[in-house]
Amino acid sequence: MKDLYRGSLVRLSASSPEELARHFARWNQDTEFHRLADDRPARLLSEKKIKENVEREQFSKDPRAYRFSICTLAEEKFIGVVGLVPEWAHGDGWLFIFIGDRDYWSKGYGTDAMRLIVQFGFLELNLRRITLALNSYNTRALKTYQKVGFVVEGVQRSDGQREGVRYDGIYMGLLREEWLAQQEAK
């Protein structure tokens, strides 16, 4: 059996609520990061409040999301979060990912984490497809998702507004059969 949690640059792991809260509080200060990862208004929560939110999610009986910390293999450094929210009845999963530590942008860490979470979705959760959405100005993310095999399924026009400018929401999907064919071709 393969090690589902281990990639070539990163591994999927779990962090304590304290560790997550400490990092999130720091990453939240970086509004460029926030605006790439999210379409809601930036806000600053206390470490205490973030920790309570994380605990509620981690210790709930039936957590909606399969959420992992992304840790580098080389330095064992916690650099971001990736996860899936399955819609069980239809076998669709919503994917989310962010690399909060800017030193690890554009170096393949996100792509490696994406490959792991997609594999987890299809081989462990047995999903039929995976869905994700991004802000249209996040061109780096778009390239990463395409590299992993996601296809643009549509564009939500004028979905949001930043700095007075409307931007689109891009929706992407990856079907199980597409992913399997891609694995065979390797």
């Binding site: 549509g154 929706y171 999907g173």
Partner: peptide, 22 residues
């Protein structure tokens, strides 16, 4: 019509697109 999430809906073993309109 803005988005077609391919085969996102499973009904009676058949797969249908989920269509999003704006």
């Amino acid at each position: 019509e803005e988005i077609r999430r391919r085969k996102a809906i499973n009904r009676d073993g058949e797969f249908w697109d989920l269509v999003s309109f704006g």
